[in-house]
């Protein structure tokens, strides 16, 4: 049986054929066992689908159910909850953290220079530190009035 013939039998089972064609197919199914088998199978499939399909019933009437959906579509959108207003100078606060990090870095880098800047000045205008040679001695004297400090080096 070709596909065209099978579709014709399916239309007959579903009651979709006009009356001359309906009678022709009915006669064909009676005399042809293959067509009869296909018609029987199609009927079983149809009844299985009808009986096996679950039925859902709305808890409210059909009109009320659809009117609720319609109202929901027609109603204006509910406004989204607003984010809390940013405090004043929030834009300034955003810069505090990076500026603080930068200031700390700058302070660490500048510490040696600051230490020198604020270090107490040497108390005396000049002072001897060391004489590496054993046969060298020295005497330091200073004249405040002349603004001169002399380290006199004596070689023994």
């Amino acid at each position: 049986m070709n596909h065209e013939a099978a579709l014709r039998i399916q239309a007959w089972v579903d009651g979709e054929l006009p009356s001359p064609a309906d009678r022709e197919v009915a006669a064909w199914v009676e005399r042809d066992p293959d067509a009869a088998a296909l018609a029987t199978e199609l009927r079983h499939a149809r009844s299985a689908l009808r009986e096996g399909e679950p039925e859902y019933s709305a808890p409210v009437s059909r009109e009320f159910y659809w009117s609720a959906i319609e109202r929901r579509i027609a109603s204006p959108r509910t406004p989204q909850p607003q984010a809390p207003a940013a405090p004043p100078f929030a834009w300034l606060a955003r810069w505090f953290v990076p500026a603080g990090i930068l200031a700390a870095l700058a302070l660490v880098l500048m510490l040696p220079a600051l230490r020198d800047q604020f270090a107490p000045p040497v108390k005396r205008a000049s002072e001897e530190v060391e004489s590496p040679l054993d046969d060298i001695s020295s005497v330091t004297f200073r004249s405040e009035s002349e603004g001169i400090t002399v380290v006199w080096v004596n070689a023994r």
Partner: peptide, 30 residues
Amino acid sequence: KLYGEGKWTKTIRQSVAALNRGELAVLAGD
């Protein structure tokens, strides 16, 4: 640092502020 005949002889420290005030730092000997 003072070097006499190539030998390190003496080290002194001098206030820069005193120099800038016009003071003299002197190393001397016979």
